[in-house]
Amino acid sequence: MTASEETGFDRARRTFGQVAYGGVVLGLCGGVLLHFVQQRAMASLVLALTCGLLMTVPAVNLLAVLVEELRRRDWAFAALAAAVLALIGYAVMARL
């Protein structure tokens, strides 16, 4: 398959990946820059938000896989994806 065969859903996934990647790059560079100009508190806040974004990306990818399996009506794999999402959701919420 080639990129030209991407469906609308595939394009949405790729766009999310690119936007999230851009956000991560901006957040990391901005945070490090703020650290170097001695704005430590603001740097920590920006970097903490970026770490949060980094943790969100895999969860959204997993959600996309879940949606894809639901669209294929493959209930077994959809249930597995939902179970994994529930596990990481629980793990994160338990630490908040």
Binding site: T2, E6, R13, Y21, V65, E69
Partner: peptide
């Protein structure tokens, strides 16, 4: 996590991953 996030910018159909096996 940065490694994993970097992989997300490739076109979906050009990715080699096996999503079912991964799940």
């Amino acid at each position: 996590l940065a490694t994993s996030s970097s992989a997300g910018i490739a076109p979906v159909r050009r990715r080699f991953h096996n999503a079912r096996l991964a799940i």
